[in-house]
C-alpha cells in the first residue's frame, strides 16, 4: 500500500473520529425512550397537527409556569395557524401597553407582533414563586438539552414511583430520566388535562408527544425549510463535483502522472 493510499484510508477515519469527539460523554442514566418523530432525519418534516395540539398543551398547561420569550404570536403561522386564529389567540392575552399620560402602566389586548405572554414579570419573580428554581424559558429548551426531543419526552412521561429506599426530599419529585432522578417540577401532564378539538385522546403520552413536537418547532422554526433547501444544495454540489471532475480528467488527459 503506498503512502498516499494509506493516507486516503486513514484520513476520513481520523476526521470522523475528531467529529465524534464533539459528541459529549454519554450520560449514565436510563436510556431515553425512542419515540418516532415526524421531524427526524434528513427528509423529516413537521407534523403540523401534532405541533398545533402541542401549542394547545403549552398554552393551557406549560405556559402557566414557563415563559417563551423568543416566540411571537405571529410565528404561529409556522405551525399552520391562520392569520385570524393568530389574531384571536393574541387578542385573548392581556399584555403591557404604553405608559399613559400620567406615566402609569397600562394594559392592552395582544397583537400578532407581541412576544408570547410570560407567566411572570421577569426571571426573579418566577424564581421567587418557585423557591429560587425559576422554570426555564422554553423557546430553545429542546436544543438546550442533551438528547433533545427524546429527553423532553422522557421527562414528561418519566414520573414513576421511586425505587425502594430512594429518598425524595420535600419539594422535589422523582423522574426516571432526569439526571440524578430529582426534579423540581411536579408531574405536569395528566390524562385528559386538555380537550383536543380534533378529537385526539389526550393521554399523557399523546400530550407529551405533541408538546415535544411543538417544542422542536419553537427551537428550530427553520428546520423544514432548511432540510428541503439542503437536499437541493447538496445535490447541486454533488453534480458540480461530478462535472468538475470530468472537466479535470479532460484537462489532465495529456499529462503523464
Amino acid at each position: 500500500m503506498s503512502a498516499s493510499t494509506l493516507l486516503r484510508r486513514l484520513l476520513p477515519a481520523a476526521m470522523a473520529a475528531s467529529v465524534l469527539l464533539a459528541a459529549p460523554a454519554v450520560r449514565a442514566e436510563e436510556a431515553l425512550p425512542h419515540e418516532h418523530w415526524s421531524f427526524s432525519g434528513i427528509f423529516g418534516g413537521l407534523d403540523l397537527a401534532a405541533a398545533q395540539r402541542g401549542f394547545q398543551v403549552y398554552n393551557e398547561v406549560c405556559s402557566s409556569c414557563h415563559s417563551m420569550n423568543l416566540l411571537h404570536y405571529r410565528d404561529l403561522a409556522g405551525i399552520g395557524l391562520t392569520a385570524q386564529q393568530i389574531k384571536d389567540i393574541a387578542a385573548s392575552k392581556t399584555v403591557p401597553g404604553p405608559l399613559d399620560d400620567n406615566g402609569d402602566e397600562t394594559t392592552r389586548p395582544g397583537t400578532p407582533a407581541d412576544v408570547f405572554k410570560a407567566p411572570y414579570k421577569n426571571s426573579k419573580a418566577a424564581g421567587a414563586a418557585f423557591g429560587g428554581a425559576a422554570p426555564p424559558d422554553q423557546s430553545v429548551l429542546l436544543n438546550a438539552r442533551e438528547g433533545g426531543a427524546d429527553y423532553i419526552y422522557g421527562i414528561l412521561t418519566g414520573y414513576v414511583d421511586p425505587p425502594a429506599g430512594f429518598k425524595v426530599p420535600d419539594g422535589l419529585y422523582y423522574n426516571e430520566y432526569m439526571p440524578g432522578h430529582l426534579i423540581h417540577m411536579p408531574q405536569p401532564l395528566h390524562d385528559d388535562q386538555v380537550t383536543y378539538a380534533d378529537g385526539t385522546k389526550a393521554t399523557v403520552a399523546q400530550m407529551a408527544h405533541d408538546v415535544t413536537t411543538f417544542l422542536y418547532w419553537t427551537s428550530n422554526p427553520e428546520a423544514v425549510t432548511r432540510k428541503r433547501m439542503g437536499v437541493r444544495v447538496v445535490l447541486f454540489l454533488v453534480l458540480m463535483a461530478g462535472l468538475t471532475y470530468t472537466v479535470k480528467r479532460q484537462i489532465w488527459s495529456d499529462v503523464e502522472h
Partner: peptide, 30 residues
C-alpha cells in the same frame, strides 16, 4: 477553467466545450 485555453488530446471538441460551458454555468448559478 471552463473557458481555459488548454486543449486535451482526446474527445470531440464540441462535446468537451459543451461540458465546460455547463460546468462554468453551474459555477455562475452557484
Amino acid at each position: 477553467a471552463g473557458t481555459g485555453g488548454h486543449h486535451g488530446a482526446h474527445g470531440g471538441d464540441g462535446r468537451r466545450d459543451f461540458l465546460r460551458l455547463i460546468t462554468a454555468s453551474g459555477a455562475v448559478i452557484g
